[in-house]
Every structure is written in structure tokens, then in C-alpha cells.
Simulated assay, not measured.
Amino acid sequence: MRELARQGFKEITLLGQNVNAYGKDFTDRNYRFGDLMKDISKIDIPRVRFTTSHPRDFDDHLIEVLAGRGNLVEHIHLPVQSGSTAILKKMSRKYTRESYLELVRKIRAAIPDVVLTTDIIVGFPGETEEQFEETLSLVREVRFDSAFTFIYSPRAGTPAAEMTDDVSAETKKERLKRLNDLMAELSRESNERLKGQIVEVLVEGESKNKANMLSGRTRTNKLVHFEGPKEWIGQFVHVRVTEPQTWYIKAEPVELATVQGAVS
């Protein structure tokens, strides 16, 4: 990580199927993911994020470390998969609806402006309409900014593959549409709250369709489009949000003096 900092990297993402389980298998020391993130926060890389985390292993120490901010961004991808405790049990997720909501409460108490995103599966074997409604109600309660949503399909080698896939394809598609409609509503509301605000964007590249149109991400992983020279690619730029959309934000660059005045 320090070598990446020396090379000038501006954002690092720690990847793992369950990244916050790091350290659980250590037998010679007590050093968990929260300790790792605390040490990483001392390294001179402007932004550090991680994915994907498992609610089961998201402990209080990690929340405390993330609340320290600095280069640890206030965006957490926290896959829930279902809002029904019964379905979560069938998925072997090792947490309940109630414990997930309590975790969200603790995260929000420590990081009030945190942006939460998630993964959700619809149509898991045996999922009833009532259980799907539990997922919708959890999504409304948490108010995720975005979600990766999936229709269940059997995957060889998993316990679920032995279960009867008894939710019809038509029902799965209908549930996915209802979920995606809700997510579009929540995403748009979240983006609308940013209108007029100045945000920091790490410029990732230029549009293939429009000259001088750049795109990048905020600390909270919001996708932003704005006009600017390609020399800005790889740099941090401050922009003012002008036209929030459902899945991305349109913005305009602002002068440094304006930024300093806005935050002073």
C-alpha cells in the first residue's frame, strides 16, 4: 500500500468476497479488519474504500475506525440479500433482519452522512409475497442510495441448488421490477439532495460520445458528469451539482476560490 502511495495512486479499493472477515483466521495475533483499516488510514493515499463486506463480520471497532474519516470514505457497500429473516436463514447468511437494521443504526449514528449501497436477490426458493414485501420495507427503512439487484437462479455446488426453485420466472421478473422501481425512486431522492452542493470528484475518464465531457466519482461513489479538459483525468476536481439524475449527477466545475469560500 505504501508503494502504491509512492507511485501516486489516488484511490484504492480493498477487494474480497468477505473483506471484513480479514484476520479471523490469525492464530498468532489479534489483528482484524478494523486494525488494518486504521493502519491504512495513516498512509498517504487520498481515498480508500472496500468491497464487499458481510454484515455478520461488521464489528463496532470497524465502525469506530471508519468514523474517523480522513482517507476512509463514507460509502459502505453492505449486502443484505433479503429483508426476510426466514429467507436469510435459508441463505445461511448468519444474521437476521433485526440485526442488520441494528447494524445500520450503529453505522448511521457514527457516520451520519454515510451512503449505503447493497445487493439483493429476489425469487429465492420458497420466497413468498409477504417475504418479498419484507425486503421492500427494509429497503424503504434503510433508504439505500443504490443496489445491485438479481433474480435468483440455481448455482451448482451451493446448498440452494438442492432446493426446489418454486418461484415462477414471471413472479421473479415482477418482483425485480418493483424492487428496481423503488431503488430508482430512492436514488433520485438522494441525488436531488445534492443539488447546488460542491463535491470533490476524482476524474476517471472522458465520454465516448461527447467531446470535453468528463466523468468521475465522489467519495460516496456517486457518478458525476461535467465538462472539462482531458488533462483533468486522474485528478481531483471540485464541481457544483446542477442537474441530479436517477443514476448519475450532472455538474459544473468551480474555481478553487469558490470552493474555499464555501467550506470556510
Rank of each mutant, 00 (worst) to 15 (best):
residue 258 T to F: 13
residue 206 E to P: 08
residue 53 S to K: 00
residue 100 Y to E: 07
residue 191 N to Q: 05
residue 153 S to M: 09
residue 86 A to P: 10
residue 251 A to P: 04
residue 232 W to V: 12
residue 59 D to E: 08
residue 110 A to R: 07
residue 2 R to Q: 15
residue 107 I to V: 15
residue 181 D to G: 13
residue 261 G to P: 02
residue 164 T to E: 15
residue 99 S to E: 12
residue 254 V to T: 10
residue 31 Y to F: 12
residue 187 S to H: 07
residue 36 L to A: 10
residue 82 S to L: 07
residue 32 R to Q: 14
residue 166 D to L: 04
residue 142 V to Y: 09
residue 79 P to H: 08
residue 196 G to H: 01
residue 111 I to Y: 01
residue 100 Y to I: 04
residue 9 F to S: 06
residue 106 K to G: 06
residue 81 Q to N: 03
residue 177 K to I: 14
residue 159 P to C: 03
residue 224 V to M: 03
residue 255 E to F: 05
residue 52 T to E: 09
residue 236 F to G: 02
residue 180 N to R: 10
residue 120 I to F: 09
residue 238 H to C: 04
residue 113 D to Q: 05
residue 30 N to D: 15
residue 132 F to R: 04
residue 96 T to A: 04
residue 45 I to D: 07
residue 125 P to S: 02
residue 155 R to N: 10
residue 258 T to R: 15
residue 72 L to A: 06
residue 41 S to A: 06
residue 161 A to V: 06
residue 20 N to D: 08
residue 93 R to P: 00
residue 118 T to D: 03
residue 203 V to Y: 09
residue 15 L to T: 08
residue 131 Q to M: 12
residue 24 K to E: 13
residue 256 L to S: 12
residue 135 T to L: 14
residue 145 D to W: 05
residue 108 R to S: 05
residue 206 E to S: 14
residue 184 A to E: 15
residue 159 P to R: 01
residue 202 L to C: 00
residue 115 V to Q: 01
residue 146 S to M: 14
residue 117 T to A: 07
residue 123 G to R: 08
residue 166 D to A: 01
residue 35 D to I: 04
residue 114 V to M: 09
residue 139 V to Q: 01
residue 45 I to P: 04
residue 1 M to K: 13
residue 70 G to L: 05
residue 15 L to N: 02
residue 222 K to D: 04
residue 181 D to V: 10
residue 232 W to T: 11
residue 180 N to P: 10
residue 221 N to S: 12
residue 202 L to H: 08
residue 48 V to S: 06
residue 39 D to Y: 11
residue 191 N to E: 00
residue 177 K to G: 12
residue 150 F to H: 09
residue 235 Q to C: 12
residue 31 Y to D: 10
residue 46 P to F: 00
residue 127 E to G: 11
residue 79 P to Q: 11
